[in-house]
Computed example of a mutant assay.
Amino acid sequence: MTDASLHIAPAGPAEEAGLRDYWQLLKPRLMSLSVFTALVGLLVAPGDIHPFLGATSILWIALGAGASGALNMWFDADIDRVMKRTRSRPIPAGRVAPSDALAMGLFLSVLSVTMLGLTANWVAAFWLAFTIFFYAVIYSMWLKRTTSWNTVIGGLAGAFPPMIGWAAATGGTPLEAWLLVGLIFMWTPPHFWALALFVKLDYHAARIPMLTVTHGRAETRRQAWLYALGLALVSVATAFSAIGGPMTLAVALALNAVFLRGAWSMYRRTDAESEADGHAVEKGLFKWSLVYLFAHFTIFVVEAAMGAYGGW
């Protein structure tokens, strides 16, 4: 699935880069998701953590997530130039030199991991380092370009932040922390496959072996439905763990009812139906998946706050 022509480095910057360009290298949307889930992990972990230590831990986790984004953009500049939705990014657009993005990514990687280890603990620092390596090397350099499993296995990189937050607060990674990882891990495939179903031509052009490209849209819809079922099981399981409770169960049931209905509707559609309405169901499921994750993680914080004040 590779082509030597895709790996030709872009030309040097055509114009001087601004702060906004370097900010975009950090992939702020993905970074904000990592920060949010890491913060939830830190807040729901047992015990107390000093607010300043908690804030600095989240800062280092954010910088680590940004480092991953910069390294990903550096390596993916070739395919970013081909895809419509990514060709305006700083490197393919010629505003930032690839070498600058690489240097930025490496510097932030070392800084974030070292500082998290020194200010919080080295368990959290280890998992942050592993996450950066997994996203930049395992996913970006290997899985993304070679296998349709890229979304499934690669999703682990985005699933680790809540466990890193938990480890920063406690120095440990118990079952509850892994449940948070599992929730994001099962959520990632249907979330990104819904997106892939309405940007399929982009992945074809870039020769990325997404499931839509290698196995077709029908199989992608089927797999999204199966992972949505698995997601529902993990979601409900969190309600019966130390981080859950009655409200988590109620919210999980409501969220999954909507998510499963959308995934089932998407599964039952034909390509013709999808094209006819502009991929309305796929786009709807993609947007709902964002609401789903935000609401689910928010309820964990509410449960923790209620428990701290004797609510249950």
Rank of each mutant, 00 (worst) to 15 (best):
R221W: 06
L180Y: 00
L111E: 07
L175F: 13
V301P: 02
M163D: 01
G245H: 10
P28K: 06
A14D: 13
L260I: 14
V35T: 11
A136P: 02
A295G: 08
L180W: 03
M115E: 11
G262K: 11
H50Y: 04
K200P: 07
H191T: 00
Y203M: 03
K84M: 01
L116T: 09
P190Q: 00
S88N: 07
A169F: 06
D277W: 13
F300S: 09
T170A: 09
P162W: 05
I243W: 10
H296Y: 00
D78T: 01
I49A: 11
V110I: 15
L42H: 04
A206P: 01
A4Y: 08
L179H: 07
W178V: 11
P98V: 06
L25W: 04
W60L: 08
P246Q: 13
A168E: 07
E303Q: 14
G171V: 05
D78E: 00
L39G: 15
A224F: 01
L231E: 01
F300H: 14
S88V: 05
F36N: 02
E176K: 04
I138S: 01
S34P: 04
Y267K: 15
M83S: 04
L226Y: 12
P13F: 04
P28S: 03
F297C: 07
A304R: 15
L102F: 10
L26S: 15
A159L: 04
W60M: 12
L30K: 02
S241L: 15
A136H: 06
R85P: 05
L249E: 12
G171P: 04
E176F: 02
S112E: 11
R87S: 09
I184G: 03
P10V: 02
A252H: 06
P90C: 09
A228S: 15
S274Q: 14
A305C: 00
A77G: 01
A206W: 01
F198N: 10
L108C: 04
A17T: 09
G64L: 04
D80F: 00
Y227C: 12
L59P: 00
S34V: 02
V302N: 00
A280S: 08
R261H: 14
L102D: 10
E176L: 04
G278S: 09
I91H: 09
S5L: 14
H191R: 12
Y139P: 04
L111K: 11
A276T: 13
